[in-house]
Design a protein around this nucleic acid. Structure first.
Length: 493
RNA sequence: GGGCCGUUAGCUCAGCUGGUAGAGCAGCUGACUCUUAAUCAGCGGGUCGGAGGUUCGAAUCCUCCACGGCUCACCA
């Protein structure tokens, strides 16, 4: 019970007074029949006279978010899960019950039974006939028109942010609708939603540093998954031809406006398809869900206009590098690429492969230009150990990344289903791992064994849901689209 | 991890080149039956993020620490 200040004391006093009146300050169930938005929308056009004639009864409940007392009458707004509505409390009508009004504070929950009317200024309002006290709030809410701005409190105490900042609530409602819409889309295309291990003995499917934990009974270290990929492909081997998983991945890396240690990813796998099919599929999926949830294809992001209407251009990784490096590079030449990267100020480690260097150049030179949706295709093989090689060039793989608003939104490829090649690629990754590249892939013998039974040609893709939500809700930081983003521990002081 | 910025009342913020803390909202008391940033009169509220230091004197200057933001690095 730290920091019991005067404001809290006042409220505790009212709480005791409620008890003396025989009222439970933390309330009993209340039969809610109407919501703020159903009333506001349902009677938006109705005239004051018609309202009086019809004498419409309603029952609502919510948190008091504004309060204006006049002695024998009081106006307040209550907020429920759908919105807010004004309540008019009169001594003339409530009689004895009106004494309760003096015990009310901003933030308290009340239930109201009453009749609709329209005030002089035209606001649809409930005139209370019965007031039921539901729950006392003993801490004062943030201020009513500046709201809550302190970002640290907004993230740590998201509940306050949600109460006070209605736009924040909208973002998370949109996020939920988007995820629902994605599921609906995939289900309609014959996909099966599955769940695969979050705790894995061999973390695979991405280039990333994992979190480690320990299982006591089994006495073994386990890793929080960095991707579900290898398990989903095992399911393709098992004959589940279209599967998806939409859930959390964990990566033990830096935190930034674009990275949270746990983040939400959609991965889906389609047997008998390749990366070209997936590009068509991705255009359809993203434009469909955007239209479904936001009713639009054009979005405002960071002051610029974004157009999601397909089709989106498809440019190879190499062409893109050439296009944005004003002819200063021959990407097929290892030494020249290296020299060029150095001139860009990129730190080149000795063990960097040609493909790695090219990708660094790409990030430096190309990525900052990719605002409108674009597919970058055909990546270097050595940075894509799980993707199938291009038939005409073994140094490239059938892989694309979708960029929107300078961000990588999706990553997909024709899955490597040749177990012999897969073993070679893993072996090379293991060498990198031993050389100190801590994010490199590990050998996964069971995965190779699965491929040896035969995996049909398959296209697979991952989509970063948080980043997609950021773009569609014009949110500059990933923390704005994750309810409880990771922060350092709150100091005890 | 580096750089820059921030942390003052429950909330939003002032507080100059050092002189001992201020506003609005919220709260309390009183008035008020159509207000919506209600209004009017009065009152209370602070370990100035934490610890050291300089100084006669520190919210203010210096050092360290904590937390946060932006950014760079790292990283899909």
């Amino acid at each position: 019970m730290e920091d019991i200040n005067e404001l809290i004391q006042q409220r505790l006093k009212k709480l005791d007074e409620l008890k003396l009146l025989g009222i439970d300050p933390f309330g009993r169930p209340f039969k809610v029949k109407d919501t703020a938005s159903s009333i506001m929308n349902g009677y938006a056009e109705i005239s004051p006279d018609e309202l009086t004639n019809k004498s419409i009864a309603c029952t609502v409940a919510g948190r008091i978010i504004s309060f204006r007392g006049f002695g024998k009458a009081t106006f307040c707004h209550i907020q429920d899960g759908t919105g807010k509505i004004q309540i008019y409390l009169r001594k003339e009508i409530l009689g004895e019950q009106y004494n309760l009004v003096k015990k009310l504070d901003m933030g308290d929950f009340i239930g109201i039974e009453g009749r609709l009317f329209r005030t002089k200024t035209g606001e649809l309002t409930i005139e209370a006939e019965k007031l039921t006290f539901l729950t006392k709030s003993i801490r004062p809410l943030p201020e009513k028109w500046h709201g809550l701005k302190d970002v640290e409190i907004r993230y740590r105490q998201r509940y306050l942010d949600l109460i006070v900042n209605t736009k924040v609530k909208d973002v998370f409602i949109k996020r939920a609708l988007l995820i629902k819409s994605i599921r609906r889309f995939l289900d309609s295309k014959g996909f099966l939603e599955v769940e695969t291990p979050m705790m894995q003995a061999i973390p695979g499917g991405a280039t990333a540093r994992p979190f480690v934990t320990h299982h006591n009974a089994l006495n073994m270290d386990l890793y929080l998954r960095i991707a579900p990929e290898l398990y989903l492909k095992r399911l393709i081997v098992g004959g589940l031809d279209r599967v998806y998983e939409l859930s959390r991945n964990f990566r033990n890396e830096g935190i930034s406006t674009r990275h949270n240690p746990e983040f939400t990813m959609l991965e889906f796998y389609m047997a008998y398809a390749d990366y070209n099919d997936l590009m068509d599929f991705t255009e359809e999926m993203i434009s469909t869900v955007a239209k479904d949830v936001f009713g639009a294809m054009k979005f405002e992001f960071e002051g610029k206009s974004l157009d999601l209407a397909p089709p989106w251009p498809r440019v190879t990784h190499m062409e893109a590098i050439k296009n944005y490096s004003s002819g200063n590079i021959d990407p097929t030449n290892f030494e020249k690429s290296r020299e060029y990267a150095k001139t860009l100020g990129i730190q080149i480690k000795d063990d960097f492969s040609h493909g790695k260097i090219l990708d660094e150049i790409f990030k430096e030179v190309v990525e900052p230009n990719l605002f409108q949706p674009i597919f970058i295709i055909n990546y270097p093989t050595d940075i894509s150990p799980l993707a199938k090689r291009c038939p005409d060039n073994p140094n490239l793989v059938e892989r694309f990344e979708l960029f929107i608003a300078f961000r990588e939104i999706a990553n997909a490829f024709s899955e490597l289903n040749d177990p012999i090649d897969q073993r070679t690629r893993f072996e090379r990754q293991v060498l990198e791992l031993q050389a100190g590249h801590i994010e490199a892939h590990r050998m996964d013998e069971d995965f190779i064994r699965a491929l040896e039974y035969g995996m049909p040609p398959t296209g697979g893709e991952g989509i970063g849901i948080d980043r997609l939500v950021m773009i569609l809700t014009n949110s500059p930081s990933i923390r704005d689209v994750i309810l409880f983003p990771q922060l350092k521990e709150e100091s005890k002081q």
